[in-house]
């Protein structure tokens, strides 16, 4: 079945998944109803929606070409900000602050965005121009205005997407971006308890880390993880040094004191007193589990980190962390 660009059947539906099986990307569309992207992560928002039997049982499917054609007719709301991060450093809180304002659509680590950004690894021959076109089409479809107050889209990316910062800047030229990072030992401690996907060999190409494939054999997970995190931070630092438009660096420790002002300034939020109250409310919650109040775990993390995690943090991460701090302080 073909879905033309003006197909009214897709009104109120959004791409929930892109699959790359069989050599041609397919787009699966979910009916969102009144579900807004307010959960800490994109897939949690979809999980909520899929509790409705209609959304679970009935999904449209289109080709990527259909999605791209539709994007030309319906580009969606403007993308006003990109949030990059090294992981475990407050980026979910930043996404939740942005999502606290009903005029924003915040796409937090959206699966379809990740699939498109890594499509060239699964489908040889995919060009950067194609990835950019697909990325804009996916974000445009997810960023359709479904509520009258919605005005802008923010992308909170997966940690490894900072390696694609130049491509994302080409896709969304002039859009302000932020890179978040945190004291290395605390980040390593967080991953020690529950490792992120990028901290295990397999997700990222060894070449992206400056390693030969064989070099991974026998490498302790702590060393691998620290090298990944260092690579992400180096990409953020390089992107910042080479920035063509508005960009900021933000250390986790500064979010509580500087976060709201920085977001407001960088992304032009123009906060009303009511907005400021909403941000305060979001900041007081645990970003990844908003039913709980926020609890600062900095001291706990430093206390519980293993010796090897600490050593790897110091060896691989400390230098780039200090370079980021120096760059941030230079302004």
């Amino acid at each position: 079945m073909s879905h033309g660009p003006d197909d009214a059947r897709l009104e109120g539906w959004a791409p929930c998944r892109v699959s790359l099986a069989d050599g041609a990307p397919r787009v699966e569309w979910c009916h969102l109803g009144a579900q807004r992207f307010t959960a800490p992560f994109f897939d949690q928002t979809l999980e909520r929606r899929l509790r409705h039997p209609f959304a679970l049982l009935f999904r449209h499917q289109t080709s990527m070409e259909d999605l791209v054609r539709r994007h030309a007719e319906r580009p969606g709301l403007p993308v006003r900000g990109l949030v990059f991060h090294m992981s475990r450093c407050g980026s979910t809180l930043v996404a939740q602050l942005l999502a606290a304002l009903p005029r924003h659509i915040v796409l937090s680590e959206a699966g379809p965005v990740d699939t498109v950004l890594r499509a060239h690894l699964r489908m040889p021959g995919i060009t950067d121009a194609q990835r950019i076109e697909w990325l804009r089409a996916v974000v445009g479809a997810l960023g359709q205005r479904r509520f009258p107050e919605e005005e802008a889209v923010f992308l909170k990316l997966d940690a490894w997407h900072v390696l694609e910062l130049p491509l994302l800047q080409r896709a969304f030229p002039g859009v302000p971006w932020l890179f978040l990072y945190r004291e290395p030992v605390e980040v390593m401690a967080s991953h020690q308890n529950h490792r992120g996907a990028h901290m295990l060999p397999g997700l990222l190409e060894p070449a992206l880390l400056g390693l030969e494939a064989g070099a991974l054999e026998g490498m302790p997970l702590e060393e691998y993880g620290a090298r990944v995190l260092a690579r992400l931070c180096e990409a953020g630092l390089r992107g910042y040094r080479e920035r063509q438009g508005p960009a900021r660096l933000l250390d986790y420790r500064r979010i509580a004191t500087d976060g709201a002002a920085l977001l407001s300034d960088l992304f032009g939020l123009e906060l009303t007193p009511e907005d400021a109250e909403r941000l305060r409310g979001a900041a007081e919650r645990d970003a990844k589990n908003p039913v709980l109040p926020f609890a600062d775990d900095t001291a706990d993390k430093a206390h519980r980190v293993s010796g090897v995690s600490r050593e790897m943090a110091e060896r691989y991460l400390r230098p780039v962390y200090e370079a980021l701090e120096a760059e941030r302080l230079r302004g």
């Binding site: 009214a8 059947r9 009916h31 109803g33 409705h52 039997p53 209609f54 009935f58 449209h60």
Partner: peptide, 13 residues
Amino acid sequence: LEDVTLQEALKAT
């Protein structure tokens, strides 16, 4: 998937 009226009834439940 082809019939919006059918969809409306199911979505409302």
